[in-house]
Design a protein around this nucleic acid. Sequence first.
DNA 1: CTGAAAGCGCTAACAT
DNA 2: ATGTTAGCGCTTTCAG
Lengths: 324, 324
Amino acid sequence: MEDVARLAGVSMVTVSRAVNTPDKLAPQTLAQVRKAIKKLHYVHNQTAGSLASNRSRIIAAIVPTIASSIFSDTVDGLAQTLSQHQYQLFLGQSHYDLQEEARLIDTFLGRRVDGLVLTGVDHARGVRSKLQRAGLPVVETWDLTPRPIDMVVGFSNFSAGCAAAEYLIGKGFRCLAFVGGTDHRSLARLKGFKEAIKQARLSGPVVVHTTSPSTLLDGSKALGELLSGGRVCDAVFCSNDMLAAGVLFECQRKGIKVPLELAVMGFADLPIAAGIQPALTTVQVHSTVMGQWAGANLMARLYRLEKPSIAHDLGFSVVARDSA
Amino acid sequence: MEDVARLAGVSMVTVSRAVNTPDKLAPQTLAQVRKAIKKLHYVHNQTAGSLASNRSRIIAAIVPTIASSIFSDTVDGLAQTLSQHQYQLFLGQSHYDLQEEARLIDTFLGRRVDGLVLTGVDHARGVRSKLQRAGLPVVETWDLTPRPIDMVVGFSNFSAGCAAAEYLIGKGFRCLAFVGGTDHRSLARLKGFKEAIKQARLSGPVVVHTTSPSTLLDGSKALGELLSGGRVCDAVFCSNDMLAAGVLFECQRKGIKVPLELAVMGFADLPIAAGIQPALTTVQVHSTVMGQWAGANLMARLYRLEKPSIAHDLGFSVVARDSA
DNA sequence: CTGAAAGCGCTAACAT
DNA sequence: ATGTTAGCGCTTTCAG
């Protein structure tokens, strides 16, 4: 930077300003500095900048997994917003393990990220207090809670589970099954699902647990378990669309007619839900918007533009298609 | 850090060593320092560490998109390797735009990443020289080239295209079609596909171009175009499995029997290929391994453990299933 | 609009 | 095994 300053005949501060706040310089000075930067192939060192300014322009996001497409839209929405503000994204995977999440949070804190996006509202002991002590903006996503660490955007997994059961019961199905993982959010959906069944004075549901992340293959296997069980169900609610697609494919293989012999319902409304044959009835959530909201509210807080809202319920909706 | 040092009755370097190289301390000293760290809730500042040590422990990866699952396994493989070495991952999306890739490279260089993983071997002007001048390890993926920027791991997209055509021709299909995007790698596959058709003295192929990233929906639409075209084809090669799945679903909707009336072949061997009904014949590539190789060779170079290889051909294989 | 001085919080290279 | 010294490359604050 000193070399650039010398070549441009200015001081180092001016070079710094040329990089960070170009509008605060006289156009001519700016032009000279830029020429010098180009000639010397100068690459501004953001690390030093971050240290001096105490601002990293980095946001970290932790998702359970990126290989399953369910969270990638949220990351994408977040990335969209961040790139508009020259922010970079650190990505971490918790693999559905709260301890792993806690470890990632520690390293991100050490790297002085300006903000953090978490998946879910269920965390390891000590995480809440550590983050509050750190005082950095945090957004929890994909769920709601009356007591967020800082901000939260999502929807009620419990209500979504209820809605799924109500939809199926409304369609006349009487023996319901649930296929899903054992993470906090899947279990919340299951709880809602059970509650609605109870309200309708039906028995069940039959439950098959899969290991997270739940894949297409888990769906196929789950159908097998379901069929070998004692009770014969007429509808299955899967806690994500991939699982549901796996069930659907297995039905095709086994010659089970959907929805006549078995209704199938998914969750998330991934692109495959609308594309698959028969089209999948599912619960739509606003995956991309969650990421965008997280990004926007992090930025709002970092730029002190406004008092961002603390909680935001994006809701969900049952999308009725052919499979149920 | 000074506070910790004082409380533990040691100097700052000792605290630094307790964090970075704990085995170089006497067990007792280490314990004292750790106690002080805990008591004061000290969070080590890696940014300052990076500046002082000139090493960020960050690797940046640029993929065309994360929302399409095709590259997420590579990112996952990379992340696996990095986490073993306490490295963090910056993720950027180029959206299939070389200029966008170049911009991302600039910001990553400014953040002094220790290494870079790129998708493809086709880049904007000036990128090669800039990276070579920066002197940081770079791995290009998902393709091969005789002249890598630094290291390259992948497979020949041209050969994969050939292999697809040869497989279909070997199965007796005579009028082939290609559905795929217009990025460098898809076009290389198309080139190979054409070459093999020419070698077999057949005419065609019929080509339908989609916009990248190519989705399920693009596949459905592409089948429409294919059917409305003049020539009636008996086999389609899709440049990724999602596209192929879209074609398959559309065939089901239109009552076209696969593979009897139309054979469908995909690319990448995503989980859906094996799961879908009928199971999709496809070209398998080693998506996760590419990421792992990239990570391992970046680490090898950064730790100077060995002279890493410059180019690595992971190959591919045609997986024959039911759709073709 | 531009500059001088004083760090940001840590680590490398030497010492002991 | 631990400490001392001297920065890493930038930005902040305050002046002018």
